[in-house]
Amino acid sequence: MNLEAVDAKDRYPKEYTTWREDPSNFSVNGIYPVRKLWGTAREAWREILLSPGESFLIVTHKSILRALICTALGLPPERFRAIDVNNGGMSVFNFNKRGEAMLQSLNMTAHMYGDHFYHY
């Protein structure tokens, strides 16, 4: 079932409030989606870091992208909403030799408003 936010708020007020105010403790049938995202993001970073010197383009949905950014920066699931991600925004990470993430840019959206090209 796909509910609009206003409908979810009316039909499931407690769950909606948890999702908005404490997403890491939001659960559906015993599954904690945000915590699960963190596990998926950590596994993705492990796979990426197995290929040092390579470049990757990751195209994904907003929630997993938030998880990827947060886990790379060492933020826990409780910080899910600490970083806002715009649809179509580009974020760039570099990694040092120890595999530590360095955020080069976050949420670049200029490409959506003109003929801009980014070269890395």
Rank of each mutant, 00 (worst) to 15 (best):
M90R: 14
A8W: 01
S91K: 04
K9E: 07
D10H: 14
S91W: 07
S27Q: 03
S91F: 01
S55T: 14
R81S: 09
M102G: 05
E15I: 02
K97D: 06
G39Q: 04
D84R: 06
A44I: 09
R11T: 01
T40R: 08
S55M: 03
S24D: 14
L106I: 12
G114F: 12
M102H: 04
V28E: 01
D22R: 11
R98N: 07
E54M: 15
A101F: 10
V28H: 06
V59G: 07
I31H: 07
H111P: 01
F56K: 13
F80N: 00
N2G: 01
P23Q: 04
A72R: 15
P76T: 14
V59Y: 06
N107E: 03
M112I: 15
K97M: 03
T17H: 10
F26P: 00
R98F: 12
N29A: 12
A82M: 04
F117N: 09
L49A: 04
L73P: 07
N94P: 01
R66G: 00
G88A: 02
A72W: 10
S27T: 00
A8S: 00
P23W: 03
E54K: 15
M1Y: 11
L65S: 12
K36A: 15
R66T: 02
P76F: 09
M108V: 15
F95I: 15
H119K: 05
S55Q: 05
K9Q: 05
R11V: 02
H119I: 14
W19Q: 01
P23Y: 07
M102Q: 12
D84Q: 05
G30P: 04
T71G: 05
G89I: 08
G99H: 11
E54I: 13
